[in-house]
Design a protein around this nucleic acid. Structure first.
Lengths: 203, 203, 203, 203
DNA sequence: TATGAATGAGATTTCATTCAT
DNA sequence: TATGAATGAAATCTCATTCAT
């Protein structure tokens, strides 16, 4: 067993190395334009080695999605069960923003394939989106019960909120519209939360 | 001139045919897995003919984006300048929803490449997103001036609203979560509008 | 018959036009990299028209060779039957030099194919080289009989002389060796003639 | 180091194999009509393997030129510095003749491209022609100094002599004029040397 | 008869995957 | 087990030629 453990640890090291290389190359060139040769080079392994750990190139994408989805929002939930609504949302936004920023283009390269690969889409939905707005859903249900907020369909609102955050950040991150003045991240967060909570209508 | 018209019409016919074929195949397999051979077959033309009308495969994508973006939201603006806020938003949502539904997977296949191709991204942003939320922006500015809604940053809210609509519909359209009960489009629209206008907080 | 004449004249005009276009493009790009589209454009005719006058692209090459071989050296022969040897050679050299210079890269593009296309080679040999050194041969035979020059194999010497002239001019024309000082055409001619007549050995 | 040697030997084996295949096919069909598929078949390798050793088809041509030009005339120079003029020239001619004969049509296929590809032309000139007549040049200069031959421009005469030899052999090798009696190689050599040294003029 | 658009065979090249070492 | 060279299927794109108008 010790041997098995050791073995698996060594094995994991290779796996990790390959994934790191793949992440780099995918982030830089996108999935389709990345070659296994480039990945091997970036990982510092032989090209054939990739296939000792992954069935094919696409599996690298699945594995990376798995990897980055391993521990997202959860701590918010655990650590902040009864936080003020505005505070809670801020945490969620900051978490997602940080998520996008930290994975940056790697995330983009995965998202791209999601639109085209149903299996990957299923994965993304289950591993990243669902937990994310499940958390939000639960929070919303809870707040509704507490009478803090009015009754809404948590799925729609959850999706909507995540969509609002994502589009603001994803496209801001891939910055267009150079003539437009840059808006600070804090301003975005603030605005979205206020809107989310209070709507636009006066009074 | 009649001749010229006729000529250009014939030429357009082929172009259109090719684009239709490309749209079909892109929608079914995504851009990268679509082959020019398949496109030619779907279009009912020779493979070489594609290159009489488009410089390369990628140009098909650009042309399709162009095509798609040719006549979006605008009529809403023109026809309904002073509509009730809720009504206005409903029109926008329905427009976008219809847009996504009518182009369906073709739109997805374009979006996918957007994450990877800066030129296409620029196009998408300029042709589809910007006009869409520019309209919203103007509307918001107008309403703010009228005192109907409170002062917000139109760009953030515009992006946010579009993001909320898109994610709800795009992912709904790519239906996951089969165990979840389907939510009707009307319900989604209603919920988003209410939220957008009134927020969640109980006053 | 008048009609036939007229017809053939018109027909010749098209033919000529096409050949002129082909000559331009071949000279610029070489045979293989020239496209029928480019040729048609240069000729100011439709692409299909080429095939009304020539069986295929390669026939253009044959026709051009025919064209440029139509009236070379001969007048030297006719006009200068009994010229002084040195004078005669000078005329030949000047003729060949002028030939290469006037057709320039077109000639090069034909020569290139000659190494690869036996039929064209046959043509070149028969139409350009043979007459050229046949003339020389005859002259040599004549001079030998007159006792002016010693007995030689006219074919070898003929080939040799043409080769000496060609290499000096062809490669000079495609100028290499920029650091080498340019040698004037006259100097080359002079040197070759003296060598040809008197050899190198000091008596 | 033994390993390194071995490795490089194996790699060289493949390279060599591909070049041999390319040489065969180029010689038979010429560069442009040769396909990579044919080359791969002739070399007994997969088509893709070619691209592990050469960037593209054209590089095969460059490599072959390189190969061909690796060990030309030089030994003449080294081994026969002070030979009799006639003897020296005979060695040069025989060397060039043997060169053309041994590479035959492969050489022709390279020459053909030389007229169209400046880079290749530069190479041919530098690697094959220049060394060849540089040697001749030096020899001539030397003999002039010794008073054996009269003063000439070595470049012109060098070019001329090589041209005379090449045309006689190249075209003889691509034999035309079947009705003409074949002339023996020795006869050609003899004739050219005599001419070169003594000229044509009597006394 | 001139035209130019349609055509598809075929060429080059890429690259994920295999496999002998 | 890691390796990296060999592989060939397959993809994009070109272009000489055909042919309906």
């Amino acid at each position: 067993m010790a041997i098995a453990k050791f073995k698996s640890t060594v094995s994991d090291m290779w796996r990790e190395r390959i994934l790191t290389g793949a992440a780099q190359v995918f982030a830089e060139k996108g999935f389709n334009k990345s070659t296994t040769k480039q990945i091997a080079a970036a990982a510092g392994v032989g090209e054939g080695t990739i296939y000792n750990y992954f069935k094919n190139k696409r599996e690298l994408l699945y594995a990376l999605l798995e990897e980055i989805s391993s521990e997202p929002i959860k701590n918010i939930h655990v650590n902040n069960p009864q936080t003020e609504p505005a505070e809670f949302l801020k945490l969620i936004i900051e978490d997602r923003v940080q998520f996008i920023q930290s994975y940056g283009n790697l995330f983009s390269s995965i998202i791209a394939e999601v639109f085209v690969d149903p299996e990957l889409r299923e994965e993304l939905y289950t591993k990243i989106f669902k937990p994310s707005y499940t958390l939000l859903e639960k929070y919303l249900e809870n707040q509704i019960k507490l009478g803090t907020i009015r009754s809404v369909n948590p799925m729609i609102i959850g999706n909507g909120f995540i969509g609002a955050v994502l589009l603001n950040n994803l496209f801001m991150h891939l910055e267009q519209d150079q003539n437009t003045e840059k808006i600070s991240q804090d301003e975005i967060t603030e605005e979205l939360i206020t809107w989310f909570m209070s709507g636009l209508k006066i009074k």
